[in-house]
């Protein structure tokens, strides 16, 4: 079984994001970039499926700038077999990314697409669901457990207020939640080996996909600052302050 794992290069989760002075977006100049953490979980799960003998090949795909090759090398170092970069300097919306991935899937015909439930930059939580809709495949989102067998995937999903277990027939799109697994650190020998694994680069234009934006960003701003609290002497003061604030 071939597993396709889309991965995204995003601002590192440890970096404090800063908004550009002209409020057009987040300042990415000289900022550390890494693989989106949910994508790491998806790569890990795919590699574990291969180690269990369920998957035969793990293909990592990224849509992004030349530097996304580093992100793909990380996936290869974790255990993916080969990688594909669809190169573009455009900042694509989720719908466009889903269309690009659909085009890649048309060429690769995987039986399972395993991807993160959302990227930590846009936080849209949309590409997996959109991709499965465009392919007319079943979807199993927010997975915390995945078992493959008998032409189907049994997936435990993290939903509001509990867990839901569903069966989906393959091929399907599964999106990983935080508790699915703990991704491994790539070992130095594996990082070295990853440099020799195949990485295909395609130009976005060669896929013939409509990537026109549907949205216009009006303004990007930081969340409002919290104002400082005040110290009160007695319980009665708290009550009177809460009353002034209109909470009580």
């Amino acid at each position: 079984m071939k597993v396709l794992v889309p991965v995204k290069r995003v601002i590192d989760y440890n970096v404090k994001a800063r908004v550009k002075a002209d409020q057009t977006g987040v300042d990415l100049a000289n900022v550390k970039m890494s693989m989106n953490p949910f994508c790491e979980i998806a790569v890990e799960e795919a590699v574990r499926l291969k180690e269990k003998g369920v998957a035969t090949e793990v293909v990592a795909v990224s849509v992004g700038p030349t530097q996304a090759q580093e992100t793909l090398r990380t996936a290869l170092a974790m255990g993916a077999d080969r990688a594909i970069l669809v190169q573009t300097d455009q900042d694509l919306e989720p719908l466009a990314v889903a269309k690009v991935l659909k085009a890649v899937i048309g060429e690769e015909s995987p039986e399972l697409v395993l991807m993160g439930k959302q990227a930590i930059d846009g936080d849209n939580n949309a590409v997996g669901q959109m991709l499965s809709a465009l392919l007319d495949w079943p979807q199993a989102t927010f997975a915390s457990e995945v078992a493959i067998g008998g032409g189907k995937a049994t997936v435990t999903r993290e939903v509001d207020g509990g867990l839901q277990t569903i069966d989906v027939s393959l091929p399907a799109v599964v999106t990983a939640d935080l508790r699915l697994n703990e991704p491994r650190y790539a070992s130095l020998p594996n990082i070295m080996k990853a440099k020799k694994k195949p990485l295909d680069v395609k130009e976005l234009g060669s896929l013939g996909v409509d990537t026109a934006p549907r949205l216009k960003v009006v303004k990007v701003s930081e969340p409002p600052k919290r104002s400082a609290g005040i110290k009160v002497e007695t319980a009665a003061d708290i009550v009177s302050n809460l009353k002034t604030a209109g909470v009580l």
Binding site: P94, N124, N125, A133, P213, R214
Partner: peptide
């Protein structure tokens, strides 16, 4: 997002 993709619109 499934609805958005089928309608070819953004979410």
């Amino acid at each position: 997002p499934r609805v958005a993709a089928k309608l070819d619109v953004a979410q």
